[in-house]
Design a protein around this nucleic acid. Structure first.
Length: 523
RNA sequence: CGCGGCGUGGAGCAGUGGUAGCUCGCCAGGCUCAUAACCUGGAGGUCGUAGGUUCAAAUCCUGCCGCCGCAACCA
């Protein structure tokens, strides 16, 4: 057991050749919930994000726009961060791979791997397209021609390069997977990778490019630059001090969770641990390959991949501006299973928002506040030191345990479902059954007790929702004088009623005795 | 036989051997504190298909059909 529980997590490093879309945001969101949850649970958390800028595509894009590459990268990084900030992604560092620090540390790393004897100079031979000025794989040349330059004949070409000897790590990797069943998550992805390696095997990979101006120089042969994958993965260690601040690096490494898209599991589950092993560094603890979000075509009902050519890209800011970051967060976390695929459609978005946020949570909050305000002037006398009675169908300790388990397995949609079905629904049912608005006319104390009971599921919900909807949960929670300060709440507090030192009262700002709707219905 | 995933009431999903469940939508009723919100009840499924194993299969096995991902500006 480490003396202090710490949690280091990362999200995939993004190519900034276009602005982030919903799918990119989905990943950041899933990681954010995990990070916020771990913080609540007392972990010291470090959340690393960044942009992958040392690629030919980026320099081309900058050239198209007539910008200096660095200026272009800095501007994109700014734009990305604006989006992440708008979505309340709570990250601790944002690495740009064009930073001098990253360059230095990456060079140190590759030198180490070279010194350890896992990089060899050889010749790369393949089909080269003069139009693209790049090598093309057999697959890309299906039909014998480059799909982008059908008028040109691909030529056989050979050129010097450096190979990373990935094949040497195949057995070690399979062993590592075997000994660490949690390494690749979810399980379906793990099976996929193991199967892939067993059937196709791992080949040595060319990790250099020649004749590029933009990128990181190979320290032992400056004619070459480091190929983007080898360089990008290093962000995960250069961002926490590798090669610069060894104490800091030792504190955070190995990584507890790399969040990545399912398309790049190979790089993170095979290449990355092998690179680290080659440099004498421990492999990461877990890699989580999340699913993709597809766009539901509102007219045809067909699911499409977000793509510029289809013109169906939805930018996160569009939703945040129209609705709110909380609405954005809720939809994707509740509606799209993180471990597998999900879909986005405007109609569905409104449906989910209205049903769960407006009608259920928002309405429960507003009916309770109104009842307490109207009938008791906002103060429930005599509730100091009291404990609420349990509501039928709502066993908080059980629910808290299952929500916890779901979050730890990144099953965010199931965590949210549990909160709604096991806490909020019973609360609304209890309200209806006890009818405190009626009871208050005959037995004011009994009605008061019912309202006091109703506040408990609301309080627990806020705590459980804190990683998911940080703003709304805070607004609701701080509408009352609950005992534990918002900044200090943990899941354990949600399971057990916390007696107050003073009578319970409504602190929310009211307009004519009513709260402003937190989630105004759409439509 | 490249690898992998999916096919459950109108829509979206849960359910890995033992009376088919949830959300939305729809219909009827109740309530009126609340954001025309809330609560109760109902209609609607032979769980893609054909076989097999079993006392018992949506759930295990096999064949077939259909859809999708892994290779392309794209997470």
């Amino acid at each position: 057991m480490p003396d202090r529980r710490r949690w280091f997590q990362t999200t995939a490093i993004v190519y900034p050749n276009s602005r982030p879309h919903i799918g990119t945001a989905f990943e950041k969101l899933g990681a954010d919930v995990q990070g916020r949850y771990r913080r609540m649970e007392g972990y010291e958390v470090f959340f690393l994000m960044g942009n992958d800028e040392n690629t030919v595509k980026v320099s081309k894009r900058a050239a198209e726009l007539g910008l200096e590459v660095q200026a272009y990268c800095d501007d994109m990084a700014k734009q990305f961060r604006q989006v992440w900030d708008a979505l309340d992604i709570q990250y601790d560092t944002f690495v740009q791979t064009s930073e001098p620090r990253h360059h230095r540390c990456a060079q140190k790393f590759i030198q180490q791997v070279y010194d350890n004897g896992y990089i060899r100079k050889d010749a790369y031979e393949g089909w080269y397209c003069d139009g693209c000025e790049a090598f093309k794989s057999e697959r890309e040349l299906a039909g014998g021609k480059c799909p982008l330059h059908a008028n040109l004949e691909p030529v056989r070409r050979s050129e010097p390069c450096y190979f990373f000897e990935l094949s040497k790590f195949q057995d070690w990797l399979l062993e590592y997977y075997d000994e660490n069943p949690e390494f690749i998550q979810p399980e379906s992805r793990r099976n996929e990778i193991i199967q892939l390696i067993k059937t196709e095997g791992l080949q040595d990979v060319n990790i250099t490019r020649r004749g590029e101006d933009w990128g990181i120089r190979l320290p032992f042969d400056p004619e070459f630059t480091i190929y983007v994958w080898f360089d990008a993965l290093l962000t995960y260690i250069t961002g926490i001090g590798y090669g610069a601040d060894e104490a800091e690096f030792a504190k955070w490494w190995p990584c507890d969770m790399h969040f990545i898209g399912k398309d790049i599991t190979r790089f993170h589950c095979a290449l990355w641990p092998a690179m680290l092993k080659a440099a004498g560094i421990a492999p990461p603890r877990r890699v989580f390959g999340h699913g993709f979000v597809y766009k539901k075509n509102e007219e045809t009902g067909v699911l499409e991949r977000f793509s510029k050519s289809l013109g169906n890209v939805v930018e996160p800011m569009e939703i945040v501006t129209k609705f709110s970051s909380e609405a954005f967060r809720y939809y994707f976390l509740r509606e799209c299973p993180f471990p597998s695929d999900g879909e986005f459609g405007w109609a569905r978005f409104a449906e989910v928002f209205n049903a769960d946020l407006a009608n259920n949570l928002g309405n429960l909050y507003s009916r309770v506040v109104t009842l307490v305000t109207k009938n008791y002037d906002g103060v429930l006398d005599g509730t100091a030191g009291q404990k609420p009675r349990a509501i039928e169908g709502c066993t908080l300790p059980t629910t808290v345990d299952s929500v916890r388990a779901h979050i730890e397995a990144c099953r965010y949609n199931q965590a949210l479902e549990a909160i709604w079905r096991q806490v909020l629904d019973p609360a609304n049912q209890y309200a209806d059954k006890q009818a405190p608005w009626k009871l208050v006319k005959t037995d004011k104390d009994a009605a008061k007790a019912v309202l006091f009971d109703l506040l408990e599921p609301l309080r627990a919900t806020c705590i459980l929702l804190k990683p998911f909807l940080p703003r709304s949960a805070e607004t609701i929670y701080t509408s009352f004088n609950f005992a534990t300060p918002w900044a200090d709440v943990s899941f354990a507090d949600a399971a057990e009623a916390q007696p107050l030192n003073e009578d319970l009262r409504v602190l929310a700002q009211l307009d004519a005795g009513k709260v402003k709707p937190l989630f105004p219905r759409i439509g």
